[in-house]
Every structure is written in structure tokens, then in C-alpha cells.
Simulated scan of single mutants.
Amino acid sequence: MTYQGVLAKMQTEFGDPIQYYLVFEDSFLNVNQLLNKEIEINFTGYQCLNCGKKKKIFRQGFCYDCFYSSPAVGDWIMRPELSTAHLGIADRDLDYESKVQLQPHVVYLAVATEVKVGVTRKTQIPTRWIDQGATQAIALVEVPNRYLAGITEVALKNHYTDKTNWRKMLSYNGESCDLIVEKSKIEDLLPAEVKEYFFSEKNDVYEMKYPVLNYPAKVASLNLEKTPSFQGKLVGIKGQYLIFENGTVFNVRGSEGYVVTINI
């Protein structure tokens, strides 16, 4: 069977294990059903996720022009403390930025390789944690806008990392951590304007289980521009990565905007 289309990050469904879907314009594929099967991925071109033109992808699925003009990839995306919509100040498009920034955001602790701090829109729970390959997560605060979440993350980065070691994340199943104990250390570290939003009594810990048959001892990343045709047996899916039997891993999200043909 053959599937063809433009890659975008895999859609996920929380479950035991997490369910993954590749969604194309005219079809979709439950990737979990491909475990232990040989699949072939062929890279055939580019298509910008923003303008739809067949232009070389620059970053995050966008061509160069769209990356530097679209409000969907402003600096405040990666650095939420730069958000200004709560002040009525535009970065690129105030209407768009207001819709995204002026909604409930959650600051959390998650474990993928070690305890890390992060920010996500409330509507993206638990999707954000799944995309990072986290095995556990707990919400710390829920604030009304992205700016407050951003300054909270900045304060907590003095005590926790905000990065995930993707190689390590893909090489093992993760170690459990008492996130409730970690959360108990947080309140005194919060900025003054955020303390009222702290979840003092809410201690729900999410646990994510991934469809991985075998974890590789060593991983090698597949770059479709350098290797436009690849074939291998799928043995796992974690984060936004496909894991193959020979230790090759493919970052689907890192290849957004690539046009591919997948043969099963």
C-alpha cells in the first residue's frame, strides 16, 4: 500500500500506548499498525505548510519568506516571555497573536530524560508532553496568558533544564521521578505575579506509555535530503520520532513540509 503527501507532525491520541497518526490531504495512517513491518520512505519534494508553494523548507515546515513573515513562527513561540499581546502590542499580527497568547497556559514539569520545565497552552495537554517524549508530567500553574507562563519558565530555568536530550530520550524508557515532591519545591521559586495561580492542592501526574518494541543502544538520525530513500523495520514511535530496527530514527516534525511517498 502507498501513501503520499506533505509531512506534518504526527497527530496523537492519549492511550495505553499512545496512538500515532500520519494525516495527509486525502488519507491518514495509524502508524502503530506498522510496528514490526518494513516501510519505505521516499522524499520527492517540498511544500510550505503556510503558503502551499513548492519551495524549499527553511524551518518548522515553512519556506524562508513565510518563516520571517508569518505570525505563527514569531520569536514568542520559542520564548513565551517575549509575548506582548496582553499589552496590545503586535509582533507581526496582533489578531493572531491575541488568539494564541491570550488564553490559558500551563507551566509544567515533565520527565523525558531528566526533570524539565516547559510551557504549553492548556488545550495542548497532554499533546505537548507526548510530542516531547515525556513519560511523566505534572502541571504547576495555570495562567491567563502566554507572557505570565513565559516569565515563570524563565524563573524556573535557574533550577531545571528546559531542553530534552533527544538521543537519550530515544534510547531508553525513562526513569520514574516523584514529581509531586519536585512540585512541592516550586512555589517559593515563582515570580510574585504568578504565585496566586500555583496548583497548591492539585497533584495529578500524567504517565505516557509509548509503542516501542525495542529501544536502540545508539541512534542515527535520518536526513531525507541526504538520504532521499530509506527502508527499514519500524520498532517504535516516541515523541515525534519513528524508531527503526537498525537504530535509525526519523524526526517527523523536523521534516514538516517535505513531500514523501510511504510504501508499506
Rank of each mutant, 00 (worst) to 15 (best):
Q132N: 12
T161K: 13
T84V: 02
V259E: 15
T44V: 11
Y68L: 15
D26K: 14
L190Q: 05
P144T: 07
F62G: 08
P216E: 02
Q231C: 14
I138D: 02
Q47W: 01
Y172W: 09
T127D: 11
K202N: 14
C177I: 15
N30T: 13
R79A: 12
K209Y: 12
K37L: 07
K202R: 12
Y210T: 02
Q33H: 11
L170W: 04
I18S: 05
V31T: 08
K226W: 05
G52R: 08
V219S: 11
T227M: 13
T152N: 03
E225K: 15
Y172P: 01
L140T: 04
E201D: 15
Q124V: 06
Y96T: 07
S229I: 15
S221W: 14
A149Q: 10
P71A: 03
Q103I: 08
A85R: 00
K55V: 11
L224A: 09
F28T: 10
T261K: 14
G254V: 12
A8W: 09
D131S: 00
A155Y: 07
V143N: 02
N145Y: 10
G133L: 06
Y197E: 04
I237A: 01
S171Y: 00
E182N: 10
K163M: 13
F244E: 01
P104S: 02
S229E: 14
A192N: 13
T127A: 12
T248P: 06
F58I: 03
N50W: 04
T164Q: 05
V260Q: 07
Q132L: 12
W76D: 14
E256V: 08
L222Y: 08
I125C: 06
S176F: 13
V205G: 08
E175I: 08
N214L: 12
T120F: 08
K122I: 09
T161Y: 07
M78D: 11
A192I: 09
E97T: 07
G174M: 07
V141E: 01
Y241F: 15
N42G: 07
G247D: 04
K55Q: 11
H105R: 07
T44M: 05
N203I: 06
G118F: 01
P71N: 02
